[in-house]
Design a binder for these strands. Structure first.
Lengths: 205, 205
DNA sequence: CGTACATTGCACAGTGTTGTGCAATTGCAC
DNA sequence: GTGCAATTGCACAACACTGTGCAATGTACG
């Protein structure tokens, strides 16, 4: 009963599904989770997993494919027939977020790398200091955001990561990157773009 | 000559330094780089690395410590004696970025996970679509950013990751997270906070 | 030169993982 | 209940990696 013409899901199909679902959660907790860990978590023997997926890579690949496909569809659906870019972006984000609730774990998976884990942990003091400044800014009305200060700190941290990636990939010149980063971070905190630009320019005399 | 009282660096010290430096680059390319890979890249034998660091973990730990310490100092130095939160943030980011140029690779390390690599690759079409919308917004003046559209797309992507982390860590309620994400993304693109909030609220009737 | 330390080259045990083979067993459907 | 697919339980071989031991070799420094 490899492929069912009827709507019935054979035991094999059900197992396959469950393996995929469980693998998602298991790989989140540990990106290097072994096939055995995954199999056991799915209430199945390792050998069975290999009956469904020829290799570890194939399993992960399937997982990623599913997530990306769903996300991609949501992203497109969210913005079809909309002409205003702002509304388009807003719709897309909202649409994507629906699925993010399911795949949040998978997407955030890389952050759980042993190495990254260590980095983020030890960076906590810095993040807390940043949170303090952000909170003060929000209180004073200099900043404006629907997010609480700690969450905004997360966002800022990741924005810097994004900028680093952009520089690594040659999308931004390393020379300007610092200023760009500063302006973008301020802007995300609700400081009007013009003010942010001016402020950073002044600091960079 | 374990610890030199003079400023002279013994061969051992030099090797230790070089191992650390090389390990940084090597671990970037592959977070799971073996001790052998690292040793060879440093022009040294595996056994020698173990002469300097008792274990693989100790090596990475040292690496992370160095980076975090430098970053932490820069962050603090950047904002000391400044009262305006906006200026404080701007200064910190600029200060941090100096080191980021060196540690960019290490910090962005987690992104290179085999898994994340795959995710980001397959997400390329989505990112490109997003880039299109952003470019249009920038052209029309709806958005405002010192960053080119593709870089801004990176930033948006990472902002979502940050928000996911925030939700995972209980900093933001999952219920509101979607709207918060949308508003924050728009704000980062230079849309005034008030407008962004209003727009998203309207979409969420 | 000779001493002290750093490095090398090999060898080893231990561990964990992957992917495969195969016979025995289970469970579902007809 | 009979048959067939899926699942199990084991046993493999192959591989890569970690940490350690030790004797030989190299190199700086007085």
């Amino acid at each position: 009963m490899a492929s069912m013409t009827t709507g019935t899901t054979s035991r094999a199909d059900a197992n396959r599904r469950r393996i995929l679902d469980v693998a998602l959660g298991e790989l989140l907790r540990d990106p290097d989770a072994s096939m055995d860990q995954i199999a056991r978590a799915a209430g199945v023997v390792r050998r069975t997993v290999y009956g469904h997926f020829p290799s570890r890579e194939a399993l992960i690949s399937t997982l990623v494919d599913e997530a990306v496909q769903a996300l991609s569809a949501a992203h497109a659906a969210g913005r079809e027939g909309v002409q205003d870019p702002a509304e388009s972006v807003a719709r897309s984000v909202l649409a994507v977020w629906e699925l993010a609730d399911r795949y949040r774990l998978l997407i955030a998976l890389a952050q759980r790398t042993v190495t990254m884990q260590g980095i983020r942990e030890r960076l906590t003091p810095v993040r807390e200091a940043a949170t303090g400044v952000l909170r003060r800014g929000l209180d004073e009305g200099v900043f404006s955001s629907p997010l609480p200060a700690p969450a905004l700190a997360y966002v800022h941290e990741q924005m810097l990561v994004a900028l680093m990636e952009a520089v690594n990939d040659g999308l931004v010149a390393a020379r300007e990157a610092g200023r760009c980063a500063a302006v973008t971070v301020l802007t995300a905190a609700g400081v009007p773009a013009s003010e942010a630009t001016e402020l950073v320019a002044k600091l960079n005399d």
